[in-house]
Nucleic acid binder design. Structure first.
Length: 290
DNA sequence: TACATTTGACCCTT
DNA sequence: AAGGGTCAAATGTA
């Protein structure tokens, strides 16, 4: 701790607070977004179709990356600000335990302090990823919970590795929809590395895993549609189904090894790089987040 | 029938 | 006490 060389910039008279730094980064990203928009308008004037389309694709990548980074920072900002300012806890209608169903489920309530799988202390948040396709990461996940999060428009979905029992794999991930844009963005928080060696071999093997009827040799099925049904949006998945399920799957073939086995490149390499850069920059400024 | 998901309850941290 | 994370019975699906 306390290993933050402050020599990288000229010594500021009064060091700005982490939230100021974040705001500054957000502001820069906003400017970048505006510039990207200008650029797009200019690019649209290119007469040759092929060149224009290629350039537009690049601009689109830039725009997406900027928007993703902005979204990450803003969601963090909201988290911090809402935790420090006592906002509006009234909420009037929702104890955290939910209560969406009216049918009272007869359930034994004798569940006393059970052994908890992982105490909060030993969890290792690995990465946060913004993606349009949280379901496509080639691991086998099993959903174990869903929670309405305060001040969040969408519930958070909780998944653990499908081999958490067989291989004692501690990997988990939380998926939270960030917005309701046309392709909605999802913030995926990866917790703990996979210790199971059960990554999908490759995407091009089109054969379905025959619904993995046997748990022993079940070579991982991808996110089942049902597992994403509630928050990720059934309609969207249906759309993908109709349009051939592979629309939103970007190429996975780049520098996969550079990323730890648990961090999947939902984004294009460029987007990934930019995002990691922004996040590490922010972390450096805001004190490592710990 | 077996397995995966849903969802209210429970537990822990803040 | 509130909010977030997890458990596990009930439910859904192939």
């Amino acid at each position: 701790m306390a290993m933050r060389p402050k020599s990288e910039m000229s010594p500021p008279p009064a060091p700005p607070s982490p939230s100021d730094q974040r705001d500054a980064v957000i502001e820069e990203l906003r400017k970048g977004s505006q510039l990207a928009e200008f650029l797009r308008q200019q690019v649209e004037l290119i007469p040759e179709d092929s060149r224009r389309d290629a350039a537009l694709a690049n601009v689109s990548d830039i725009t997406t990356a900027l928007a993703s980074s902005l979204s990450v920072l803003q969601s963090e900002k909201e988290q911090y600000s809402s935790s420090s300012s006592s906002y509006d806890p009234g909420h009037a209608s929702g104890p955290s335990g939910g209560g969406m169903r009216n049918g009272p489920v007869a359930r034994s309530r004798n569940r006393k302090a059970k052994h908890r799988r992982g105490t909060y202390g030993e969890e290792l948040p690995i990465k946060e990823i913004l993606t349009e396709a949280p379901e496509n990461d080639r691991f086998h996940w099993r959903k174990y919970g869903e929670k309405k999060i305060l001040h969040a428009d969408f519930p958070r979905l909780y998944y653990r590795c499908g081999y958490s029992d067989e291989h004692k794999c501690p990997a988990k991930k939380y998926v939270q929809q960030q917005n309701s844009r046309d392709p909605p963005m999802f913030l995926v928080t990866l917790i703990n590395d996979h210790t199971c060696d059960t990554l999908f071999p490759d995407e091009d093997q089109d054969q379905p895993p025959s619904s993995s009827s046997s748990p022993n040799n079940s070579q991982v099925l991808d996110f089942s549609k049902a597992s994403l049904s509630s928050a990720v949006g059934v309609s969207r998945l249906k759309k993908e189904e109709d349009a051939d399920m592979s629309v939103t799957v970007p190429s996975y073939n780049y520098t996969y090894d550079e990323l730890s086995s648990s961090s999947l490149p939902f984004l294009s390499p460029k987007q990934w790089e930019m995002e990691m850069e922004v996040k590490s920059l922010f972390r450096r400024h805001s004190g490592d987040g710990s």
